[in-house]
Design a protein around this nucleic acid. Sequence first.
DNA 1: ACGGTGAGTGCAATCGTTTGCATTCCGGCG
DNA 2: CGCCGGAATGCAAACGATTGCACTCACCGT
Lengths: 353, 353
Amino acid sequence: MPNDLREVALQSGVSISTASRALAGSTLVSERTRQRVLEIAGRIGYRPNASARALRTGGSRLVGLVITNLVNTSFRVIAEIVQQQLAEAGHQLVLSITGGDPEQERAALHTLMELNASGVVAVGSDSKAFAEVRARGIPVVHLGRRPAKLVGDCVLGDERAGAESAVNLLLANGHRRIGVVCGPPSVTSGRERLDGYRRALLAARCTAPAELVVAGPFTAQTGRDAVDTLLALPRARRPTALLVANHESAYGLLPRLRELSVSIPSEVSVVCFEDAPIMRWWSPGITVVDNQPARMAELVADLLMKKIAGETISTSRPVVHRIPTRLVDRESVAAVPTRTARGRAAVSSLAGS
Amino acid sequence: MPNDLREVALQSGVSISTASRALAGSTLVSERTRQRVLEIAGRIGYRPNASARALRTGGSRLVGLVITNLVNTSFRVIAEIVQQQLAEAGHQLVLSITGGDPEQERAALHTLMELNASGVVAVGSDSKAFAEVRARGIPVVHLGRRPAKLVGDCVLGDERAGAESAVNLLLANGHRRIGVVCGPPSVTSGRERLDGYRRALLAARCTAPAELVVAGPFTAQTGRDAVDTLLALPRARRPTALLVANHESAYGLLPRLRELSVSIPSEVSVVCFEDAPIMRWWSPGITVVDNQPARMAELVADLLMKKIAGETISTSRPVVHRIPTRLVDRESVAAVPTRTARGRAAVSSLAGS
DNA sequence: ACGGTGAGTGCAATCGTTTGCATTCCGGCG
DNA sequence: CGCCGGAATGCAAACGATTGCACTCACCGT
């Protein structure tokens, strides 16, 4: 026995149109028939066919999330929150993980077009397939990284200010030689963080010598290597503090420091970008610049749903939103050890015990 | 200008049927017309309308993944791999995160039914909505936890053997008093791990006193509390090794041990369940029972796609597959400390507070 | 009494594809 | 020469919902 709208109509003794309207809550049906239809629908467990509806109305209530991976804590949080927010509004999340491969990204976007997606959230992406998506009137929101060509609004962290706040904290603790580990210059977020770092140093009339800047891909290895490179510098040029501008690197940098028994924060202060469980649980707790992925995700969901509801492919220019970062001060930053202070500490510890 | 099959047909000078067949690769069209149609389709950027196709054929090529969260490393890996495998076969992943809430799970499953999902992967779930899904002929594969009522094949880790291998390793290192932290008894995986623990001890003619068994929800707090409970035991009854049977607890347990300056493995040996980056990076590296989520995911995707392809809601009984675990020996297990060698400062500090 | 009104309902077209069946066209065979 | 068969194509009916339009009444005002 089928359980489509026709069946509901049949059993309710009304036409398909009326049944449809009753279920849709139209004012064009009498209260009594609505009750009857609803009751029958409930009884036979009627579920509307999403394909048919999408075909007829042109709206699928599917939203694509195109993302490079789920390992990155920010991305994971974003996926969770966006899914949840969309679900509350009756949308479904179609997940595509591209691994950063443009070809896969293209494929994902094409599929989303075929699905008549109601919207697309893309994080860290940049391909001309977006133009097609946009051309089809599907709203797009960019997230996390700013692509060269915006086809929709863009939600970013305030990377520059975040880096500045971190560097300022270090400066306030007396650090002058601050090493930085950042992502490849091709990624906007990495560039901006580096820029913030430079700017803060400049404002304090400090130098940022090239030897203190290490750039590399988003891998733990980059972090490991950075430690070795920076600590190999002669004492006087060695950094007393490190700013780790992406947390993939942190996953290599922190263990490497421990391997080498370099003590945080007494020997080197550390500030990392992006909060993650491991940052809280590391010993000592790592001071981080939290880019608040949950807030980014909420805003993204909000923007996208407004666009979807508006139906209007707003011809206005895409706007870029910046979510402020939050400096979470834990235990990995301390005053720069002065020669005398260090000597004193050693002496007193001897004397004390 | 529309972008549908009719347009392709029109420009190719053939009927819609022929165009459809040409694109579908049917043998019923001449090579020449196929070429022509393909060329036109490519030129005008034709993309088939998935809704229309789904409506007509009854297959949506959408697969639901219903999961409690993405924080758990195993789940995250599963989501990534399943997505990738499905995408390769031309399916799309619809992600639903339930947070463990049965109501949300029900809603997710209902939505998937409306979408005419081609299949559903459910991890850690148990609700009667599955019966409806099954009744609609949608293949289901369970993953990770075994629900009371199987509506489809089930892929699990070999929890019992995994726990046994861990305990055996500890026994081989001379440990006799082995504490265990496990999930709530309501979850099958937790029960099985506990069972494996008991069995291994029994086989070695050791006891597993109740005071060494701590059960609690899948939270970091459970792990923290477990440390305090177990270490508060009088010296002679205190465990010399810990088996942490879920990694949510590990996230609380490991930092707590470090807070208390309880040294691993010299004061206490530790084996955790489920591998994760933090296990590798912890210092010392934590020996784990790896449940190989990637292999589970691959098998799940494989099973599901076979069922989808088969079209047959195989009436045969659901079969339960077990993926073997892998003991990854790192640095957190050492021979049991002799009484004299055993440090006392850290542990007694706890008793004091 | 009659036309107007408006609430409630039904008819039928429509969304874009797939596919069973009919149709055409051609060559080959009896 | 007519007939048959197969290859290639087209026609039209689905799939299940939404929705503009037309229709039916009962009721009201004049």
